[in-house]
Amino acid sequence: MTTLVADDRRTDRSAMPAPVEFQRVRVRLGGSAVLDGASLELRAGELLGIIGPNGAGKSTLVRAATGIVPLEEGEVLIEGRALRSYSSQALARRVAVVQQLPEAPPTMTVAELVTLGRTPHLGFLTRESSRDRAIVAEAMERAGCVALAERALGTLSGGQRRRAFVARALAQEPAILLLDEPTANLDPHAQAELCLLLRSLVHDGVAVLAVVHDLTLAAAYCDRLVLLDSGRVVASGRPAEVLTEPRLRDTYGVLVSVITHPDTGLPVVTPARGAITAQRAEDVDG
């Protein structure tokens, strides 16, 4: 009897649904398919990097995962349940998003912004409790913006602003965190800081999906990479498996060298000067 229960538990765990699963997702924006049958999953306990050239559909993938863009075909499953079956509040309790260029009033303070992250956990007329305030304080602490709490958003640098929005997402206490180019426009120190924060979140059991442009950075911090091109998944797997010279040449249209870092053994992608191979689909379209 006891063994049976133990067995059941084991099967349950192995059958535990992926935090996010995209099943042949097709999204059409302005007439053209931005996602064209993309299938991939964000697994429990991993930091998944989404890479790919501009216009590959990376941002749309993030937006599709929260129901912001309608799916023409396919399905997005959040923890095994269809995205459609979630109320927006129930979804916001599981999934937090850090957009690439989120808007907010410049006079809003960091503390006010982060407090908004508690929204999905509050009833219509309830005010923030001391527990909510403690969670907000912890989120700011973790994202490194305690000292900025009373600063207005309009007075922050790009890196500080990014930290504030990450803190807001953390205040949602999400099981799944989606970030659209979180390291863009950050200096190397701030990039490393943010990546380490994401790693510590993964360590705490949050499933993290991040769109990343810097391939070397993606290889250094992500457990797996998914390479998108023209709305389709071209490759997925461990960074060393995905980042191969011929594949990068074909998707990005540029000659690069992929070398192995002498200390970490991780792939490092370096450009070769003046090595554009062909016009890319995006340039032709434009």
Binding site: R93, V97, E103, Q172
Partner: peptide
Amino acid sequence: AHGRVLNVLQLDEEQARQLGI
């Protein structure tokens, strides 16, 4: 009664939706 919701709406619409509004 919508005071707090209006605070969230000061962010862009996409963020407000992603916060469950």
